[in-house]
Design a protein around this nucleic acid. Structure first.
Lengths: 236, 236
DNA sequence: AACTGTGAAGCCATTCACAGCT
DNA sequence: AGCTGTGAATGGCTTCACAGTT
């Protein structure tokens, strides 16, 4: 275990160079660590963490080592400490406010979805352009017109937007969102957005996901022939 | 352009060896082709297709060449023909029936979501174990008890399941779904399922996606410094 | 003994560059 | 000229294997 840390900036965290695929795994590590914490576990080894997620121990160690030395040889990683550090990497150690834009069937469900909360997010506002939707209430959130978005964001209350409008208007609405100086968009509309580089976008096309599944579910396409005994397998 | 096709099985499609990441892009090609078809375009080049999705032309050609020779030098790809071929690769040239398992806030929204239809899927049934939910109607779909799942699947009406139950029961419910001999599960529960290899699983953890976005939206983490002029950029 | 952190090797994916077709 | 299909080159990610720590 090298002590000088020469491949990283000496006093701080590595910045700007981690691949998206690594970051995705970090999310899974955090999710697993939270489960371990609930079960009262206080340490975990890279092998155990990997096994639970279908990854090799070396992969786990490499991923975590990008951000510093958290593990203790002979012991493993301390669950609470590592979880805390991962949250700070994601920026979810402090709660972020989120807006839902587009309150159709999907948007209104995402508005009610409780899964965000456990991860350090809070949906605090909803916007739509249809007059029929404006003023409607979901729980304690009232749907506001798009024209109010910029004001709410500028008041510092919202960092991220969940975009759930029809494909035909998604590009236009996304541009409005950008003008409100939001930092990132979770895009549920089935189109590729074209936006200025200072705004982050993560696409989530549910129909595409189901299409992927349909492909995999065709036995002649998958590599699932390997291991075709009866051993269990973990999802990608 | 080689004519003998020596690297593929002579008379048929390549089977079993395409990486998931390639398959994901194929979905995007299909989505784009459908938009082009609506606009009345009859051919498209690899460069145009790539530009719309933020990919290189070489990438597009390599991906498509895995499955055969569809392009015409000097012309490009024929939109309708290529779209049809991609659908047959995904198994969505014929409509697949899908069940929603778990009718909470997210499940009921996925039940009502219209986006599946355009892609060759039809949600035809919903299941839940809570007596209070059973018998409830969403559109023309009545929520049935889990015990009915196996029968409906075995009657050949359902290939795929959308799993939208709480994390705490997801593994158990997923096992029930497997026993019903379903081919694939789209897993919205925030856990990694451990299942026999003959069933395909695609995980869709919405909280993880938002976490990814939170990471990317932190300016010091992204590579978005490149191109930091004002040119537009396409989402990953 | 158990486990991490990490060079080095191996493997996979992307891009390059160009022959060949239309 | 415009474009595809594809070997070859490059670049990136994963796994191996082991020195070093507890």
């Amino acid at each position: 275990m090298k002590a000088d840390g020469s491949h990283r900036p000496p006093g701080g965290e590595r910045r700007g160079g981690v691949s998206p695929i690594t970051v995705k795994r970090l999310s899974l590590y955090l999710r697993q660590l939270e489960e371990l914490a609930e079960d009262g576990r206080s340490t975990v080894s890279s092998r155990q963490l990997g096994k639970a997620l279908g990854l090799t121990d070396a992969q786990v160690r490499k991923d975590l080592a990008y951000f510093g030395q958290f593990g203790r040889p002979g012991v493993g990683y301390r669950v609470a400490e590592l979880a805390h550090h991962l949250r700070s990497i994601f920026g979810t150690d402090t709660t972020s406010n989120v807006a839902v834009v587009g309150v159709g069937s999907l948007g209104s469900a995402l508005l009610r979805y409780r899964g965000w909360m456990t991860k350090g997010f809070r949906v605090v506002a909803a916007f739509d352009s249809a007059p029929s939707k404006i003023g409607r209430k979901f729980g304690n959130i009232t749907v506001q017109p798009m024209s109010k978005l910029a004001g709410v964001v500028r008041a510092g209350q919202i960092r991220l937007a969940i975009l759930a409008v029809p494909a035909a208007v998604a590009q236009k609405v996304a541009e409005e969102i950008c003008q409100a100086r939001i930092e990132g968009i979770l895009n549920f509309a089935p189109i590729t957005l074209s936006l200025p580089p200072e705004v982050a976008v993560i696409p989530v096309d549910l129909a595409v996901q189901l299409e992927q599944l349909s492909y995999l579910a065709n036995p002649s396409n998958s590599k699932r022939k390997r291991n075709s005994g009866s051993r269990r397998r973990r999802q990608s």
